Amino acid sequence: MSMVMSTIKINTEALEGELDRFLDIPANHSELIYQSEAYRNIRYPVVLTRLTGEEWLAEHKDLPGCKIHGSTPEEAMARLEEVKLSWIYAAMAEGRKIPKPSPGPQVVKMA
């Protein structure tokens, strides 16, 4: 059996220039980051759902599509915080209104 090895050399400077064409970074990017960071201390209720195996799904029902998984409930919730800020940033960039957190328990665990 023979193997053919190939090496690929990537010009990262050219690649970065090309990627910029595909990234839609708003002109007010810095302001949006600042505004979305203001939501870090706002607590949205979290729904934790155990998936198959040892995976957990954490999501904010108040922020449609704002969800992520982790290997423990704690990991999923920690990762959800960063996803929440990204969700809020994107919503602001698109001019959407940010929903207020719904009242009720902060964490709901589903088996």
Rank of each mutant, 00 (worst) to 15 (best):
24 D>W: 05
75 E>G: 00
24 D>S: 10
52 T>L: 13
38 A>H: 03
12 T>F: 05
104 G>K: 04
37 E>I: 01
5 M>N: 01
64 P>S: 11
70 G>L: 08
62 D>P: 04
62 D>Q: 02
10 I>H: 07
82 E>P: 00
64 P>W: 01
2 S>E: 13
76 A>T: 13
56 W>M: 10
85 L>G: 01
66 C>P: 08
50 R>N: 14
12 T>G: 00
10 I>K: 03
14 A>L: 08
48 L>N: 11
82 E>Y: 05
95 G>K: 13
70 G>H: 12
85 L>Q: 07
75 E>C: 02
42 I>L: 12
66 C>M: 07
76 A>W: 08
54 E>S: 12
12 T>W: 06
94 E>V: 00
62 D>L: 03
75 E>V: 09
103 P>C: 00
65 G>M: 12
11 N>T: 01
68 I>H: 06
102 S>I: 03
109 K>P: 00
24 D>H: 11
81 E>M: 05
89 Y>E: 01
45 P>L: 10
49 T>P: 02
82 E>A: 07
28 N>W: 07
84 K>D: 02
106 Q>E: 15
108 V>T: 15
77 M>V: 13
68 I>G: 02
98 I>L: 06
90 A>W: 05
110 M>G: 01
6 S>F: 01
75 E>P: 01
15 L>D: 00
95 G>F: 10
52 T>D: 15
33 I>C: 03
14 A>V: 02
13 E>Q: 06
11 N>K: 08
55 E>S: 15
110 M>D: 11
96 R>A: 11
78 A>Y: 05
98 I>R: 04
1 M>P: 13
45 P>Q: 09
69 H>T: 15
87 W>F: 13
24 D>T: 09
27 A>S: 13
1 M>Y: 02
91 A>I: 10
44 Y>G: 06
77 M>P: 01
9 K>Y: 00
103 P>M: 05
106 Q>D: 14
5 M>W: 01
22 F>C: 04
52 T>N: 15
51 L>S: 09
97 K>S: 15
45 P>C: 10
61 K>W: 06
109 K>I: 14
66 C>T: 06
67 K>D: 05
99 P>K: 08
108 V>I: 15
57 L>H: 12
73 P>N: 09
28 N>H: 10
48 L>K: 14
54 E>Q: 13
69 H>I: 07
18 E>S: 12
88 I>R: 09
22 F>R: 04
38 A>S: 11
47 V>A: 10
111 A>N: 15
44 Y>T: 05
24 D>K: 08
31 E>M: 04
92 M>L: 15
75 E>A: 11
69 H>L: 00
60 H>V: 13
71 S>F: 04
91 A>L: 06
105 P>K: 14
30 S>I: 03
106 Q>R: 12
107 V>C: 09
71 S>W: 04
61 K>Q: 15
108 V>R: 15
55 E>A: 14
40 R>A: 12
66 C>Y: 06
54 E>T: 14
54 E>D: 15
19 L>C: 03
28 N>I: 09
63 L>H: 07
44 Y>M: 10
61 K>S: 12
82 E>N: 08
92 M>A: 02
